[in-house]
């Protein structure tokens, strides 16, 4: 057993702690959308993939049905499958360990693992496991805290929670807009969602924007 590189541990733990703030926002978003504290916590324990969880409760809060909510979550969850492809040869897991690795396969654990390349294969594995486990612990603790907090506050509008949720989405979107083209994609998706809102059942305007991704991603 090789000891983890201190820099790898530092990166993993700082990512895990940062994610806590998002967990708090998710906990509050889940309860303001109408989910119970238990259901909100189950999202974080079982689904454990932030963007998908936010999308599912966001569609419900927007008045969408279960199909639209789960489709939006699934569309965001496909990238975890692509992360798994990249991680599999690096982690070398088998059996039950593969299932555990799959459950911890998220944006953060993949990013830290792949950023360890220069420190060697062991550092990639350490980066993945420490980040994945650390984020899991903090994400779930803060989800519970956010859910209990929102539950105690009551009326979401009176405390601005109904605006905190779209603000959280904007905060999640912001760091992804790293090029002018991606800003154009985001603005096009917003315009498209608003344009189809009056003609689609509630919540489906969100899922329908996948068409914008298809249009922009079709040709290289």
């Amino acid at each position: 057993m090789v000891r983890p590189h201190p820099a790898t541990l530092r990166e993993a733990l700082s990512v895990a702690l940062t994610v806590g703030a998002y967990g708090l926002a998710f906990g509050a978003a889940g309860v303001s959308a109408g989910f119970s504290v238990l259901q909100t916590c189950l999202f974080s324990l079982v689904a454990f993939t932030g963007a998908s969880q936010f999308a599912a409760v966001g569609v419900v809060a927007a008045g969408g049905g279960p199909v639209a909510a789960v489709l939006a979550a699934g569309a965001l969850g496909t990238r975890n499958a692509l992360y798994g492809l990249q991680l599999k040869p690096r982690l070398g897991t088998r059996g039950a360990t593969t299932l555990l690795a799959a459950h911890l396969t998220i944006d953060e654990s993949t990013a830290v693992a792949l950023a360890q390349g220069a420190r060697g294969e062991a550092a990639e594995r350490h980066g993945f496991w420490v980040t994945g486990a650390g984020v899991y612990v903090f994400w779930n603790l803060f989800t519970l805290a956010g859910a209990l907090g929102a539950h105690a506050l009551g009326d979401p509008a009176a405390f601005g929670l109904d605006a905190a949720v779209p603000a959280a989405f904007l905060g999640l979107l912001w760091p992804r807009l790293v090029s002018a083209r991606l800003v154009v994609v985001a603005v096009a998706a917003m315009a498209f969602a608003l344009a189809v809102t009056p003609v689609l059942p509630a919540g489906l305007e969100i899922v329908a924007t996948v068409l914008v991704a298809v249009a922009f991603g079709w040709a290289p």
Binding site: A51, R79, P166, F169, L170, L173, I206
Partner: peptide, 14 residues
């Protein structure tokens, strides 16, 4: 592009 379009849609929808 999927996270970008869905998060954008969620911002305006919410």
């Amino acid at each position: 592009l999927v996270p970008i379009v869905l998060l954008s849609a969620l911002v305006v929808a919410e």
